[in-house]
Design a protein around this nucleic acid. Structure first.
Lengths: 163, 163
DNA sequence: TATTGTTATACTCTATAACTATA
DNA sequence: TATAGTTATAGAGTATAACAATA
């Protein structure tokens, strides 16, 4: 169990890390928004899968996933074929064009990080990767729990915007 | 200098950490979007400051900062007073109401992280905080450089969406 | 002429709800 | 009746450009 102030600091760092994410997004080709890159990366790592599984891996709602998938499918980077086991479902997989794009994305990500993190050791990067993965895991279970809302009471200072 | 595959993995983890950020955002009071929380937190930590300095700390464009600041000012959480040294500028500072809200936000952040990270040691959390801060620093210098665009050539596979 | 801040506009990403088709 | 996926709508966040006021 960590100290109160450490949690505050972690919350602050998580809030601020968006700047790094945005910078990483800016180096992508104009035709490929970050969300598309995420879809392609997961299909590359996990192979052919259904919409619902992809949504689970992306940790976003399936309606959003559907739009991202439509975007990459329209550009020919993935194929959607009927699932022989369930006619409601579709199986997604990368096309050769999609693999080409992924190679390009990988190159850009790597070059960018190598430039920005030139003074990081292999151990540093590995440690950060490990801790981020663990952080996601620690949060992962909680999406199925009841929505956490113990403090939205009328007496909360948040409820007195005019005060 | 880290390995190629490590950079790819870091890019993936950064892309996926958005799920944690969203979950942290969901526990805020409805009247206080994450961007407002960010503004209040920085004003608390750094004290009275100008718009331009806040935008720099948030690492977002001043036009965006202006909207966020207007939001928290309308709700009475901050004050904007004229800068006696420069009539174009305004000085921002927290109000007592803003401090009340911040205490509430801190409580929610801490409770949420304590719940999700109950099996993390103090050292683990400290390490993650340290690495995230260092990551931001490593990226921070680069915003002033020339926009990085060596690969958006017509021959890129990203430019052949019909292929 | 340059700088500080605001506003208008557009784009990306996400969630909720309503809907279709199939299990 | 329940589930897989799509679409419509709304809202938060950000960037660019045009603008006003002041340095």
């Amino acid at each position: 169990m960590a100290a109160h102030s450490q949690y505050e600091e972690l919350a602050r760092q998580l809030s601020a890390i968006g700047a790094v994410k945005r910078e990483m997004g800016r180096i992508l080709p104009q035709c490929c928004p970050p969300a598309s890159a995420g879809v392609l990366t997961l299909l590359d790592r996990h192979g052919e899968m259904r919409m619902s599984q992809l949504a689970e891996l992306l940790a976003i709602d399936m309606s959003v996933t559907s739009r991202h998938v439509a975007h990459v499918a329209e550009r020919g980077w993935i194929e959607r074929r009927p699932d022989p086991a369930d006619k409601r479902s579709r199986l997604l997989r990368l096309t050769p064009s999609g693999r080409e794009l992924l190679a390009e994305l990988s190159e850009r990500y790597t070059q960018t990080l190598a430039r920005y993190l030139h003074d990081w050791t292999d151990t540093d990067v590995g440690h950060l990767v490990e801790l981020l993965a663990r952080l996601r895991t620690s949060f992962g279970d909680c999406r199925t729990r009841a929505p956490y809302d113990p403090l939205d009471s009328p007496t909360s200072p948040a409820r007195t915007p005019t005060g």
